[in-house]
Computed example of a mutant assay.
Amino acid sequence: MREITHGDMHAAACVLLTCPCGDWPQVMAGLLADAHSADCYRKHSGRVHPRLGNGTLMAVALARAPDAAASRARPSAPRYQQALACVLSALELWRAARQG
């Protein structure tokens, strides 16, 4: 997966906001797996993955829910903050699993 930016985290959080809270860990696991796959494809082929994009979390989030990242999610909204916390937690777990 490519370097994570604030935009990536925001896009992923916006995707989570379209799902029930109980589904968030599984949705994040899928987003991270797809971003990793797309990045591997990009590195191997030298081209952007046709469905998943360039290997960024944002590209995968936009592919999964194109309208979600354009939402007007407010950073001060508690549900957005919970979604962002889930994104950060999932990133930490994903990185730990890859390093372990």
Results as ranks from 00 to 15, higher is better:
2 R>D: 00
2 R>V: 00
3 E>K: 13
3 E>F: 10
4 I>L: 08
5 T>D: 00
5 T>K: 06
5 T>L: 08
7 G>F: 01
10 H>A: 02
10 H>F: 11
10 H>K: 11
12 A>M: 04
12 A>D: 00
12 A>V: 04
13 A>G: 03
13 A>F: 09
14 C>R: 07
14 C>W: 06
17 L>V: 03
17 L>P: 05
18 T>K: 15
18 T>P: 11
18 T>D: 08
19 C>L: 02
19 C>A: 08
20 P>R: 09
20 P>F: 00
21 C>H: 13
21 C>Y: 11
21 C>T: 14
22 G>C: 11
22 G>T: 14
23 D>V: 05
23 D>W: 12
25 P>Q: 00
27 V>W: 11
28 M>P: 14
28 M>D: 00
29 A>P: 15
32 L>E: 02
32 L>A: 02
32 L>Y: 08
33 A>S: 11
33 A>K: 15
37 S>A: 15
37 S>V: 13
38 A>P: 09
38 A>E: 06
38 A>Q: 10
40 C>I: 15
42 R>I: 10
42 R>H: 14
43 K>S: 05
44 H>I: 12
46 G>K: 15
46 G>S: 11
49 H>M: 11
50 P>L: 06
50 P>G: 09
51 R>V: 09
52 L>C: 08
52 L>W: 15
53 G>F: 14
54 N>F: 11
55 G>Y: 13
55 G>N: 10
56 T>N: 08
57 L>Q: 07
61 A>Q: 09
63 A>W: 12
63 A>R: 14
64 R>V: 05
65 A>L: 13
65 A>C: 15
65 A>I: 10
66 P>W: 00
67 D>W: 03
67 D>S: 10
69 A>W: 09
70 A>N: 11
71 S>P: 03
71 S>N: 07
71 S>Y: 00
72 R>L: 08
72 R>G: 03
73 A>V: 01
75 P>C: 10
77 A>P: 07
77 A>T: 12
78 P>G: 01
78 P>V: 07
79 R>Y: 04
79 R>A: 07
80 Y>R: 08
80 Y>C: 02
80 Y>V: 06
81 Q>F: 05
83 A>W: 05
84 L>A: 01
84 L>C: 03
84 L>N: 04
85 A>K: 13
85 A>V: 02
86 C>L: 02
87 V>L: 01
87 V>G: 01
88 L>I: 11
88 L>Y: 09
88 L>G: 01
91 L>I: 12
92 E>I: 08
94 W>N: 04
96 A>W: 07
97 A>M: 04
97 A>P: 05
98 R>T: 11
100 G>I: 01
